[in-house]
């Protein structure tokens, strides 16, 4: 466990905050635990309050855990590492603002990785609201961290087209048919990124970031499998278990939830120390996730104590 680098005074304040909040949570749980032994049910709102505290406290007093990339995440990282500069990667923003806190860090970290490796990126989205999310990557990652990267040469945003998997069905044979221009109306043929790219089959890697429908599954069914295109994904944690069947044969790797994003971020910082000061939102979010998981586990224990006591009472009767 390493703490954030902060000035000495702030460090102590943060430490005090951490200890205090942990004490509050632990004390509260102990109180509920004792109440449970007296067979008192926990009210829904009390559970909500505890979850709130356990999520907010690590955000206010950040604690960063070091992550080790699991193989399924490492495979995505290694694939990007192995691509020669100039290769073309398609990054599809198949998510909306609601899903963004979980998957935007993945999109940002992967963009960072591709750009530092000198790969060209085609950005598109199957969710109409994905366009706004790309703007976030553009403003927060590409412009400030890669000022020398040029739109249309190093990356291009072709935006959203309605039609869900229908869009994929077309671009697997012809990009231009579906995307005659980029979002700004620049014609396909004058976009340098598209040089030598006619369809998805000419891409070196496709990464779908999302978790809904259309999403990674559609990419695999309509692009990856028929076109033999390497596909990777970043998905929300709830969807991740469903995607395991596709790994590794049909999907070369996957970032699942905040944990996957955090693993990718720490892998990136490990290989490219220049990103040490870049934001690592996923790593920061692992704190709340860890504490919240613990609190949920505590509530499951309390629930079971109540249940066992009730059953005992029922038997005695």
């Amino acid at each position: 466990m390493t703490s954030h680098l902060m000035p000495p005074l702030a460090l102590t304040l943060v430490d005090i905050g951490r200890i205090l909040s942990l004490a509050v949570i632990a004390g509260g749980l102990l109180w509920l635990f004792l109440r449970a032994i007296k067979r008192k049910e926990v009210e829904r709102r009390v559970i909500f309050l505890f979850i709130f505290v356990s999520v907010v406290a690590p955000i206010l007093f950040p604690t960063v855990f070091q992550e080790k990339a699991t193989p399924i995440v490492k495979d995505v990282f290694d694939k990007i590492e192995s691509l020669p500069p100039g290769s073309v990667v398609l990054l599809s923003y198949d998510f909306d603002p609601a899903m963004a806190p979980e998957v935007q860090p993945m999109a940002d970290a992967i963009s960072r990785h591709c750009l530092v490796r000198g790969l060209k990126i085609i950005y598109m989205c199957l969710f109409a609201t994905g366009q706004g999310q790309f703007t976030s990557t553009l403003e927060n990652v590409i412009k400030p961290e890669f000022p020398d990267k040029v739109n249309l040469v190093d990356y291009v945003n072709i935006g959203y087209k309605a039609g869900n998997e229908g869009v994929l069905n077309v671009i697997i044979t012809d990009f231009k048919k579906m995307f005659p221009t980029d979002v700004d109306g620049v014609p396909y043929d004058s976009i340098a990124v598209f040089k030598g790219i006619r369809s998805c089959k000419d891409l070196d890697l496709v990464i779908s970031i999302g978790g809904g429908k259309p999403g990674i599954k559609e990419w695999i069914l309509f692009v990856g499998d028929p076109g033999n295109v390497p596909i990777a994904s970043g998905v929300a944690a709830v969807v991740a278990p469903l995607m395991y069947p596709y790994y590794p044969a049909q999907m070369l790797g996957m970032l699942g939830g905040i944990k996957g994003a955090a693993e990718y971020e720490s892998e990136l910082v490990h290989h490219y120390p220049q990103f040490k000061n870049s934001p690592t939102p996923a790593l920061l979010m692992m704190g709340p996730q860890t504490l919240a998981h613990l609190v949920i586990m505590a509530f499951i224990v309390i629930g079971n104590i109540l249940y066992l006591l009730e059953r005992k009472k029922g038997r005695k009767r």
Partner: peptide, 15 residues
């Protein structure tokens, strides 16, 4: 009909 990157060794001409 198209331009291709170095290392290319195949192409599917469609339409």
């Amino acid at each position: 009909i198209t331009e291709l990157i170095p290392g290319s060794n195949n192409f599917r001409d469609e339409d």
